[in-house]
Computed example of a mutant assay.
Amino acid sequence: MVTASDLVSAGTLPAPRFAPYEREALGNLSDADSLYKWHGQMASSCMELISHFEVLLRNSIDSTLAQYFRESDRNIPWFLMNTKLAKDLSPKVNEARVDAARYNFESRDHIVSRLMFGFWANMLSRKHDELWQKTLHNAFPNARRPRNEVMSHIEGVRLFRNRVAHHDSLLGVNIPFEVNRIFTICGWINSDAETWIRSVSRCHAAYSLRPVNPSNTVIVPAKTAWKTYQKTGAYVCQPGRFFRDVSRMAFYSDKAVQASIPEVLDRRDHVPWTENEAQRLDKTGNLDDRRVAKVIREVLKLKDSNGDALYTDGLYQVFILSDISDIVKTKTLNSPVQHTKTGKGSAYVRKQRYCTSGSILHASTTNDIS
Rank of each mutant, 00 (worst) to 15 (best):
F319P: 10
I296W: 09
W132Y: 06
P20Y: 09
V236W: 02
L85Y: 08
G156Y: 03
A101V: 05
L136I: 14
F183I: 09
P91L: 11
G233S: 01
N142Q: 11
V337M: 13
A193S: 12
D368R: 13
G314Q: 08
L26V: 09
T232E: 01
S201Y: 07
S51D: 15
D304F: 09
R210H: 01
V8P: 05
G27R: 11
G285Q: 05
H339K: 14
A234L: 02
K87Q: 13
A32E: 11
K127L: 02
A165R: 06
V200D: 08
L49V: 08
T83P: 02
I197W: 02
L57F: 00
I50R: 05
E277P: 00
R290S: 12
S322A: 15
T184I: 08
D254R: 14
S152A: 15
A250C: 04
N94I: 12
D313M: 02
M249K: 05
T12E: 10
V295Y: 02
R280P: 03
N216I: 00
N94Q: 14
S253C: 14
D168T: 00
N367D: 15
A259R: 11
N142S: 08
K329P: 10
D368S: 05
T224R: 03
Y252G: 03
K329I: 08
Q258E: 11
N162F: 02
Q352W: 02
R202K: 15
L85E: 15
R181D: 07
D313T: 11
T365L: 09
N59G: 01
V292T: 14
T83H: 04
L315A: 07
A222E: 10
H137D: 12
